[in-house]
């Protein structure tokens, strides 16, 4: 079982790494923000698997904190990142 947990953790790490291609290439800033979401979910899964594989229940708390930090990162992004050309039209809302 431990071997399976570790193998899956490595596999998830690879999908995470592949996802970073999108972060690098964008094209929009919104695409880059998806990284935080990808990271939050995938890293949580990796840590939960490691908690079981290494018999370190404390890693579950790390998973929890990481997932919550990922949202805070998204909030910070959306609150602060400006577009190069400011929007004249404030939208149709």
């Amino acid at each position: 079982m431990t071997l399976l947990y570790l193998a899956l953790a490595v596999f998830l790490l690879l999908t995470l790494a592949a996802g970073f291609w999108r972060v690098r290439h964008g094209p929009t800033a919104a695409d880059r923000m998806l990284a935080a979401q990808l990271f939050g979910t995938t890293a949580a899964a990796i840590l939960l698997l490691l908690a079981e594989a290494l018999a370190l229940p404390a890693l579950r708390d790390v998973a929890l904190v990481l997932a919550l930090l990922a949202v805070i990162a998204v909030i910070a992004f959306t609150a602060s990142v400006k577009t190069p050309t400011p929007d004249q039209d404030s939208g149709d809302d």
Partner: peptide, 10 residues
């Protein structure tokens, strides 16, 4: 919950 909030923000 966090992910749903984040996706709406993005």
């Amino acid at each position: 919950t966090a992910s749903a909030a984040a996706s709406q923000l993005v």
